[in-house]
Simulated assay, not measured.
Amino acid sequence: MELSFNMEDASQVFVGAFALAVPISFSEEAWRLGETLPSTNLVALFTLSILFLDIFTYQSVFQKQIKKRLFVFIFRIGIAYFMTALVVCLVLFCLDKLPLLSDPVTALRRMIVIAMPASMGAIVVDSFDKE
């Protein structure tokens, strides 16, 4: 069975990311973490996000069957994180907490902090209809 990524998958990723991005994006603590967390910790947070996406996708979405579908596996993780980042940025922009033009580093840092839990929500919702 070849798993592809279609519009249903995309909508599930968006909904899952949105479900966790919204409440966290309203948190001043998340904004401040994005400003104050050392870069090493941000890299660790990003790495953990990707690692947990890998593990969950491998176990639940692909059911440990990736040998013949390695490209699709990697693509699915990349697109899920990218879509999550877009959702987080959109929510932060709507809250006027994404200083993309005036302070792009802070904008990126806030996105990484909030994308960690939001990406897990995205991939969990994406896995609901998989056999």
Score class of each variant (00 low, 15 high):
residue 62 F to T: 10
residue 117 P to V: 10
residue 5 F to L: 09
residue 84 T to Q: 03
residue 9 D to A: 14
residue 79 I to T: 12
residue 70 L to Q: 14
residue 14 F to C: 07
residue 129 D to L: 10
residue 119 S to R: 00
residue 122 A to D: 04
residue 69 R to D: 09
residue 97 K to I: 09
residue 23 P to M: 00
residue 107 A to F: 09
residue 21 A to G: 06
residue 34 G to Q: 08
residue 4 S to K: 15
residue 88 V to F: 06
residue 120 M to Q: 11
residue 25 S to H: 10
residue 6 N to V: 07
residue 50 I to M: 12
residue 38 P to H: 10
residue 16 G to R: 06
residue 110 R to Q: 11
residue 97 K to D: 05
residue 13 V to I: 15
residue 116 M to T: 04
residue 128 F to D: 01
residue 64 K to R: 15
residue 107 A to N: 10
residue 60 S to C: 08
residue 16 G to L: 08
residue 82 F to T: 08
residue 11 S to V: 00
residue 121 G to K: 02
residue 100 L to W: 15
residue 54 D to Q: 04
residue 86 L to Y: 09
residue 68 K to L: 07
residue 33 L to G: 01
residue 122 A to Y: 03
residue 116 M to H: 02
residue 47 T to R: 07
residue 1 M to S: 08
residue 122 A to Q: 03
residue 5 F to A: 07
residue 130 K to N: 09
residue 100 L to G: 02
residue 107 A to K: 07
residue 49 S to Y: 00
residue 36 T to Q: 10
residue 77 I to E: 05
residue 93 F to C: 04
residue 33 L to D: 09
residue 108 L to C: 03
residue 18 F to T: 14
residue 60 S to N: 13
residue 32 R to N: 10
residue 30 A to G: 05
residue 104 P to C: 09
residue 127 S to D: 11
residue 79 I to Q: 04
residue 120 M to T: 04
residue 121 G to R: 03
residue 48 L to D: 03
residue 13 V to W: 09
residue 92 L to C: 03
residue 77 I to P: 00
residue 95 L to P: 01
residue 81 Y to L: 13
residue 83 M to R: 05
residue 17 A to Y: 00
residue 120 M to W: 12
residue 63 Q to R: 12
residue 48 L to Q: 05
residue 3 L to M: 10
residue 69 R to E: 14
residue 15 V to Y: 13
residue 54 D to I: 00
residue 7 M to K: 11
residue 12 Q to G: 02
residue 98 L to Y: 15
residue 92 L to T: 07
residue 47 T to H: 02
residue 114 I to C: 05
residue 99 P to W: 12
residue 54 D to L: 05
residue 56 F to H: 06
residue 44 A to S: 10
residue 121 G to Y: 05
residue 98 L to V: 07
residue 5 F to N: 05
residue 76 R to P: 10
residue 41 N to P: 00
residue 101 L to Q: 10
residue 111 M to V: 14
residue 104 P to Q: 11
residue 64 K to L: 04
residue 19 A to G: 04
residue 12 Q to T: 02
residue 19 A to T: 06
residue 105 V to H: 10
residue 78 G to F: 13
residue 71 F to P: 00
residue 9 D to G: 15
residue 48 L to C: 07
residue 91 V to K: 03
residue 124 V to F: 15
residue 130 K to R: 13
residue 70 L to G: 01
residue 92 L to N: 09
residue 113 V to S: 06
residue 126 D to S: 02
residue 71 F to S: 14
residue 126 D to R: 05
residue 110 R to K: 13
residue 130 K to D: 10
residue 57 T to E: 01
residue 43 V to D: 04
residue 44 A to P: 04
residue 57 T to P: 14
residue 127 S to P: 15
residue 96 D to K: 12
residue 69 R to P: 00
residue 45 L to N: 00
residue 35 E to I: 02
residue 55 I to L: 10
residue 116 M to K: 00
residue 50 I to T: 11
residue 105 V to D: 12
residue 23 P to E: 03
residue 11 S to K: 12
residue 4 S to R: 15
residue 82 F to V: 04
residue 77 I to M: 08
residue 70 L to V: 13
residue 74 I to S: 08
residue 46 F to D: 02
residue 2 E to Q: 14
residue 82 F to M: 12
residue 73 F to T: 11
residue 83 M to P: 02
residue 128 F to T: 09
residue 98 L to H: 11
residue 25 S to Q: 12
residue 109 R to W: 02
residue 23 P to S: 03
residue 53 L to W: 03
residue 123 I to Y: 08
residue 71 F to C: 08
residue 127 S to C: 12
residue 80 A to Y: 01
residue 80 A to I: 09
residue 38 P to D: 12
